[in-house]
Amino acid sequence: MTNAEPTAVPGAPFGAPGTKRPLPSRALVLKIVSALILFGAWEIAGRVPVSLAFPTFLESMGALFRMAVDGTLWTAYAETLQPLAVGVAISAVLGIAIGLWVGLSDFFDWLFSPIFIVMQAAPLAALIPLLVLAYGIGLTSKVLVVCIMAMPVIVLNTAGAVRNTPESMKEMGKAFLASDLSIILKIIIPAASPVIFAGLRLGISAGFIGAILAELKITPTGVGDIITYSRSIADYPSMYAAIFSIILLAVLFLNLLEKTEAVLFKGNQRGYVSD
């Protein structure tokens, strides 16, 4: 056969290079403007003040800086991140494994899916008092809280993605003599990985909710302790600073995960073949 589309050059961008330059900087400028507006509004509301319990943005950042310098913040995070990291790790490994299993086998789908569907819809936080009675107020309870929050969405996303692998891709594997294991490893898992990663991101986000909830509800430790303690002594700037820092951490971490995913699955990120 002869050449198909002789004019097309791989990777050649459409249009002249540089025409798109101004766009990213506009987005960046607007992001900065938008942050300035929000933090400015916070500052003004704090100066009015709208409430005695509403410190200004600068006071809060000052408190954050102080806690970062004297080390309180780092000790707190060392404590907070423990149940979070352990819980998220367990949920990810177990959740993806169960999800694959449920997605691949009709029987396990029938057996396990209803449990996770109910868990996904249910306010699982209500289990916390029970967990505390059963496992005390230590690390175990907190890890479990993170797990019950994070796991259902990971399982359901994984199972759904596995089930939705395009039939023609699996058939292609069979036609080219792939073994069942090869089909799972080389077709189903790569095809499912974007949705699995999306589930992981949702799971981790729920895990953060669980970790903070555990620290506020079970026993005040780590960042939860800073929040609870500074509230009790009316040191509002420190309280707001701690809350600001945990939200910042969660958002940064999830963004980092998204970036990692983009690098890891280059082909996937660019979307499925579809016209």
């Binding site: 409430s51 319990a53 509403f54 991101r201 986000s205 953060f208 909710i209 970790a211 903070i212 909830l213 506020l216 960042v223 929040i227 609870t228 509230r231 509002y236 309280m239 707001y240 701690a242 809350i243 945990i246 939200i247 969660a250 958002v251 999830l254």
Partner: peptide, 17 residues
Amino acid sequence: VFLSAPLTALVPVLMVL
């Protein structure tokens, strides 16, 4: 940001406000 933020952390603020 707020879609994925741990909103539980905001509850204490709501309580004091």
